[in-house]
Structure formats: structure tokens, C-alpha cells
Amino acid sequence: MAPIELLIELTLMPLIAFIVGMMMVLMMRRIAARIQRRIGPPFFQPLYDIIKLHGKRTQVSHGLIHDIGIVMAMGGYIAAETLLPVPGMNGIAEKGGLITLLYLMMIPSLGLALGVGQCANPNGSIGIARALTAMLAYDIPLVIVIFGVAYAAGTTNLVEIIATQQAGGFATWGVVEMPLLAIAGLIAMHASLGKQPFEIYIAPAEIATGPMVEMSGKYLGGLFVMQCFQLYTTSVLYVSLFLGGGTTWFDFLIKSFLVLAIPVSIAYLFPRYRTEDLLRLMWKWPVMLGLIGLAFVM
């Protein structure tokens, strides 16, 4: 591929991810509103929020690590987008593979931990401790699921995994071939989004939004942008692994929005678990399902 073409793809993919991600945030808030019988925010609300936060006069920085932490939080996802194939664009997905992607998806949490650490706010520290514990909880089923899919496909190349599923049609989709892994993956994905009942590290009523408590202005704005990327990355990864990716933008977007709608609509019906409950739940059910699914695949 020509370097110019690659460069264009590498710019376009995060950009598209951001726009789609903002629409996913909007969908999430609209679903929450509908469940609570409200109308919900207007269409451009996520954009208004982000522009406003970046346009504030006061920008309180707590130091260099604080700045770098936010950049890491966003940058980890931006790098992850270039490894996620979308219809018509593969970026560097063929060279990266699933394992690199998995690593890149952990960077934001670590960056956040660094940044929040410098704020020296006890609520933030508790929040980040919980976030890392939650990562420990959902990463084990996630790794089992991704290993299972890669083992069944015989490759960690996401482009090939998608191509095989698309060539074989619906019967070869991951969700049909490996239903147990798909269910385990859905639960792990839900936990990785950090929504209720797994919302242990935001918890506004208890630890005042945890990691976000000292963030203001563009730092909070950066976290809002990160959330757009997070929703996009998780749902597109799931679509690529289990739902055959997308042949056209139309079915790609429909699939990824639908996949995201499942955890989001569950989320606003439930209160929240405690940290140890989350750990117990995550290490029991999705891990068990995942291991049985793995046994079927092998």
C-alpha cells in the first residue's frame, strides 16, 4: 500500500471512531432517558459538552504527569482505532493483530491511574484503585474469549478473522460457532465499559466520580473524548470477533450500535455491585462460560 494511502487511513480511522463514538454516547444517554421516561439530550449534546469543556477559561493542571496521563488515556484508544478494521480500511490491523490491540486497550486505564495519582485527591485514588481492580476482573474472561476466538480461527490477525466470517456467511459467524464465548465476551465487554451494575469506579454518589473528581476543563473534556473512543472500540471489537465485522458501513454501524445497546439498556435498570462482588462475579460466570466454550473450540 502506498504510504500516502496508509497515512490517510491512519488519520481517518480515529476521526471516524470519534464521530461514531459521539453518536454512541448520545445513544447511551438517550436510552437512559427513555428508560427513565425522559426525553433525553439533544442530538449535538456530546459535541456541546466537549467544546464547552475545552473552551473554559480556568484549566487547572496538577502537574506534568497529570497532563501526560490524559494524553495517554486518549492516545491509547486512538492507537487502538488504527488496529481495528472498518469497512474499506484496514489501517495497520494486519500487522498489529489482536494481542497488540489488547495491550493498547489497557493503556488508557494506566494513563488515568498516573494522571489521577498526581491530583492527590483521596476520592480519585480510591476510584483508580477500583478501576484497576475492575480491570483485573474483566481482563481474565476477555483474554480467555480472545484466545478462544484466535484459536478457532487459527490466527490473531483481525482482518483474517473477519474475512473468514464474511466468506462463510452467517453460519460461520463467531456468535453461531462459539455461542458460549460470545456470551462470556458480552459480559466482559459490559464490565469493561464500567456501566452499572459494574460501575464501581465512577460511583458519583459514593466517591464523587472517582478518577474524574479533580478533572476540570480540557482534562474532563479529554476524558469525555476518551469515553467516545471507549464505547466505539469495545463494540467494534465485539462486532469484529463475533458478528463478522461489516461488509458495508451500513451494516457495520447497525451491528456496532446494536451490540452496544445491549449492555447500555441493562445498565440503567440496575444498581451497582461492590468491588469484591464484581470480582467474584467476573471470575465465576464469564470465566466458567469462557472455559467451557474454549473446551468446545479445542
Partner: peptide, 22 residues
């Protein structure tokens, strides 16, 4: 804030710490 009058449709939402609020 809740379903009867729903402030979120005007873009107003509650936040929990002074740093985040307008």
C-alpha cells in the same frame, strides 16, 4: 431533573464536584 420536567433535554446535568461544574 427527573422524568416530569427533565432538565437534560436542555443540556443541563448534575455533576458532583466543583471542578467539573459550571
Amino acid at each position: 431533573m427527573t422524568s416530569r420536567f427533565d432538565m437534560e433535554r436542555l443540556g443541563i446535568q448534575p455533576m458532583v464536584s466543583p471542578r467539573q461544574a459550571d
